[in-house]
Design a protein around this nucleic acid. Structure first.
Lengths: 177, 177
DNA sequence: TTATATTGTCTTCCATGGAAGCTAATATGC
DNA sequence: GCATATTAGCTTCCATGGAAGACAATATAA
C-alpha cells in the first residue's frame, strides 16, 4: 500500500479501509485509497482556503464571483448568467450571491442597454480593491499549502490530476478519439 | 506545463489561469494548477458517486452514517456523538441525519442503559440490507472511476495524496496540544 | 451531601444552494 | 403585426448543515 511505509500511523482513510476489509472481505475497497483521500484532502485544503476568505469578510461563493469579475478585465463586468456558468452554480444561487455583494457595496447591478431582460454586474472601486488584496493573499495561501510537496511531487500530482480530470469530463475517448 | 501536451484543449482551470496571468501578471498562480484541479476533480467524482446514493434513495450524509454503522460490525450500533465524529459533522447535523434515517426505518434510536443522556443508534434489518447493497454498488462505481487511470498512475496518485494529506492534517487533539 | 462543571443530545435559528416556476423582454413564425 | 416560444433573471420553497444554546444526566469538588 503506497505511503504506508515505516510504520507511520494509519490515516483516517486507511482505518476506514481496515474496517471494511474486516466487515466486507468480499469487496475490493482499494479505490477508496485514492478517492477517499482525494476528497479528504480537498476538504482540508478547502478549510485552509476559507480562512483567507473569512479574513476579508467573504464567503467562498462571493469570493468566486469577485474573482470571475476581476478576471473579466476592464471594466470588470459580466452578466449574472455568465457568472453562474463560470462559477458553476444555478442562476438562482447567483442572484443571492449578487444580492449579498451588492448589499456590501462590492458590486453594482444595472440593466443591459441592448437587452432589457439582462443585467450587468460590475465591480465597484472598493470591490476591485478588496478582491485584488484578497486574491493576492489567497495565492500566497495556496502556495503555502502546495509547498508541503516538493516541486517534483507537485508536478507529478498536477499531471495526474489533469489527466484524470480530462478523462472524467470526457469519459468517451477511445484510442482513435 | 504538465498534461498540456499535443495541443489538447485547455481545461477550465487552465483557462482561468490564463485569465489571471493576463490580469495579474505580478502573481504566481501556479498553485491553482494543482489545487484548482484537485477541487474540480473532487466535485466531478462526487457528482458521479451521488448517482449511486440517489439510486438507493439516500443522500450523501445518510449514506455515510449507514456506512459508519455497518463498519462498526455486529450489532451495528453507535452513539450519535461517535457517528458525528466518524462522519465529520456536528452533533446537530447528526441528529437530523438520524431523524431522517429513523423515519425511513433504516435505523432505530434508543437510550443507553449505562448513561441515560446517551443514545444508541442501530441499523435495522432493512437498513443493513440496504447499505450492503448500496455499498457494493458504490465500490463498483469507485472502481469504474479509478479505472480511468492506469494501475501505475493510480498508485502514484495514492502515494502523493497520502503524503500531502499527512502533511496538511493538523493534530486534532482537543486539549493540551 | 450539595453545589458546580461537564457531557451527550437535541433544538433553534441562520446561511447557503438547488429545483422549479414566475415575469418581463426578446425572438420567431405565420 | 400578432401569437407563441424562448430567454434572463428572480422568487419561492425546500434540503442540508453550522453555531450556539437548552436541557437532562452524570461527574467532580467542597
Amino acid at each position: 500500500m503506497p505511503g504506508m511505509e515505516h510504520g507511520e500511523p494509519l490515516d483516517r482513510v486507511a482505518r476506514i479501509q481496515a474496517e471494511w476489509r474486516r466487515e466486507r472481505p468480499d469487496l475490493d475497497i482499494a479505490p477508496q485509497g485514492v478517492i477517499g483521500r482525494l476528497h479528504r484532502l480537498a476538504d482540508r485544503l478547502g478549510e485552509e482556503l476559507r480562512l483567507v476568505y473569512d479574513r476579508y469578510g467573504l464567503g467562498e461563493g462571493e469570493f468566486d464571483v469577485l474573482c470571475a469579475l476581476r478576471r473579466a478585465g476592464e471594466p470588470y463586468e459580466r452578466a449574472p448568467g455568465e457568472l453562474a456558468a463560470h462559477t458553476m452554480v444555478t442562476t438562482g444561487a447567483m442572484t443571492k450571491r449578487i444580492d449579498r455583494l451588492e448589499r456590501a457595496g462590492l458590486v453594482t447591478r444595472r440593466r443591459s442597454a441592448d437587452d432589457q431582460r439582462g443585467r450587468i454586474v460590475a465591480l465597484t472601486g472598493p470591490g476591485r480593491e478588496l478582491i485584488d488584496r484578497a486574491f493576492t493573499d489567497h495565492m500566497r495561501n495556496e502556495r503555502r499549502l502546495l509547498d508541503l510537496l516538493t516541486p517534483a511531487e507537485a508536478e507529478s500530482l498536477e499531471t495526474l490530476l489533469t489527466a484524470w480530470l480530462s478523462r472524467v469530463e470526457r469519459p468517451r475517448v477511445p484510442d482513435g478519439g
